[in-house]
Design a protein around this nucleic acid. Structure first.
Length: 507
RNA sequence: GGUCCGGUCGUCUAGCGGUUAGGAUGCUGCCCUUUCACGGCGGAGGUCGCGGGUUCAAAUCCCGUCCGGACUACCA
């Protein structure tokens, strides 16, 4: 039988890296087995629905290259793939009726207040929390009829079997046993007639032929409810795969205080989708051996349940940065220029960098400058990008890193001036620089190098450092950056002269 | 309170009864070198949570214990 898995997000918030990793695992698993990955929207709780999130889910998934062969936005024979629509079609009504008829579900008429009281009582008396039958599990048909006749609101609860052991075979953890008496009677249909996750997801998983229920480990404790549901219907249980979650550096659940966690924020921050994918695939899963840097195809090829980790992992930004720098270095300058330009122009990029949290970083001006420079002098931009790509970690950094190439008057770092324009030979050096390149049409890195070296030699300098540094400050305003000769050649004689003259005014 | 899950360098992990416990990242030293990076070569960092067993032999198997986490909603 071919593998069928589903990614079933709830449109209550933009997907964070944990959600996306969940989706990635399913994509890899489905691809590996040439199976089907299904996208299903779990929007049964209308009160928590946030407009626009469905779009963000799709956008995140598309950006990451996570594919669906079936489901929301992809079509298929098991639709609709939005649970609210399935509810309208009466799918859940039909199946809850079956459950009721078989005695595996019952109506419960407690009010919210009564339930609160019950929980309070349980807490005070140190009893197990939860609804284990209440007033209605064993109510007589007459009592139920009377309550209905009185127009009381009700929910439909699962009648968990008593005094039995429910065994879950988890693909990662193996056999997990539960005493059914410790599992409460979950609400299957709420007071509005909407199915809850416990019911809708399991019915859909069966109807959609899901073979593996892959989900976060936070679901382990409700697995017995789900298993019991499948048993009650007489359906074959899918294989449960409870994946480890991703935590923040402090070992706690990922949240805003860990910085960016939304998938799309990583895009806006300048990370490559493949970096994020490769990186998060390795949290909670390993291909065995020492493999780390892998293409999407390699990940698909290598992915198996056996490599899944039982313990939660921590999201390590340092390693993400390293990996992004690595992949950035593998791109050609023209590929990078294209990416940076798209990146600079994307609305989400500006939105991200204008946020208060990023107010201290000036990223957009450089990005925009690079973009407009590319329109007039693509060659310069490509050379600039090529020279900077080995010292940059994200797309966002290219703007600022390359800025001095395109600025008419790149700002001087005061400390750089202090240090290198104060040397006794600075003036003469810059004047000679002007003389050498004035009126020259073009120059190669070799031309620049020979100028610097011979200048050092004729001025009896043992090393070229004292010649290079003042020149660098004159050319870029900074003390750090690409190799001087390459950078000068990219700038060209005209700019070299102009900048040398400008620097002379600073001495 | 209850149920369940988890535990190898700071972090991600390899390991599946016999290894000097390996790799990556981060930190760090050296080399390269015009700076910063990149790259190359080293180093520090793990009593495999702890305590018992089983075994000639345990990170690997068993038990206990501690610590961490999840769930315990008419949310997912």
């Amino acid at each position: 039988m071919s593998v069928r898995v589903r990614y079933a997000p709830s449109p209550t918030g933009s997907p964070h890296v944990g959600n996306i990793r969940d989706a990635l695992f399913k994509h890899l698993f489905a691809k590996h087995h040439k199976g089907v990955n299904i996208l299903r929207i779990e929007d049964t709780d209308r009160t928590r629905f946030i407009p626009g999130v469905e779009e963000e889910i799709v956008e995140s998934l598309n950006w990451m290259g996570i594919e669906f062969q079936e489901g929301f936005g992809a079509g298929g024979d098991h639709g609709p793939y939005r649970q609210s629509e399935r509810k309208e079609l009466g799918i859940y009504d039909k199946w809850i009726k079956v459950l009721m008829e078989r005695g595996h579900a019952y109506k419960a008429f407690e009010t919210a207040e009564e339930l609160d009281e019950m929980r309070e009582f349980q807490k005070i008396n140190k009893q197990n929390f939860g609804y284990f039958g209440g007033m209605w599990r064993d109510a007589t048909p007459e009592q139920v009829e009377a309550a209905e006749a009185a127009g009381k609101a009700f929910v439909i609860r699962q009648r968990m079997p008593k005094n039995s052991t429910i065994v879950i075979e988890d693909a990662i953890r193996g056999r997990v046993e539960f005493d059914s008496n410790t599992v409460d009677d979950a609400v299957l249909i709420n007071g509005d007639g909407m199915p809850t996750y416990h019911f809708a997801a399991m019915v859909d998983d069966h109807l959609m032929g899901i073979t593996h229920i892959m989900r976060g480990e936070e679901w382990i404790s409700s697995a017995p409810k789900h298993a019991a549901l499948f048993d009650s219907f007489g359906w074959e249980r899918p294989i449960f795969v409870h994946c480890p979650v991703i935590n923040g550096k402090d070992g706690k659940k990922l949240s805003k205080r860990h910085g960016d966690t939304k998938c799309l924020d990583f895009r806006a921050a300048g990370y490559l989708p493949h970096t994020l994918g490769n990186f998060i695939a390795l949290i909670g899963w390993a291909p065995g051996g020492d493999r780390e840097l892998m293409t999407m195809d390699e990940l698909c090829e290598a992915f198996d349940l056996g490599g899944l980790q039982p313990a939660p992992g921590v999201f390590d930004m340092d390693k993400l940065n390293w990996m992004n720098g690595h992949y950035l270095r593998q791109l050609s300058p023209s590929e990078i220029v294209t990416k940076v330009r798209e990146f600079a122009l994307a609305e989400s990029t500006a939105e991200y960098w204008e946020r208060e949290a990023n107010a201290d970083k000036s990223v957009m001006p450089g990005l925009l400058l690079l973009n407009s420079a590319a329109a007039t002098d693509l060659e310069l931009v490509e050379r600039a990008v090529q020279l900077e790509q080995e010292r940059v970690v994200t797309l966002a950094e290219f703007g600022e890193a390359c800025a001095f190439f395109f600025q008419d008057e790149p700002p001087f770092d005061p400390k750089a001036i202090e240090k290198w324009f104060a040397v006794p030979h600075a003036r003469q050096l810059l004047e000679d620089l002007v003389t050498r390149f004035e009126g020259v049409v073009s120059c190669t890195p070799e031309d620049c190098e020979s100028f610097i070296r011979s200048w050092a030699e004729t001025n009896a300098m043992e090393k070229i450092g004292p010649v290079v540094h003042p020149t660098r400050v004159a050319m870029t305003g900074k003390t750090v950056g690409p190799g001087l000769f390459e950078l000068m050649a990219a700038l060209g004689p005209a700019r070299i002269v102009k900048r040398a003259k400008r620097a002379l005014a600073q001495i």
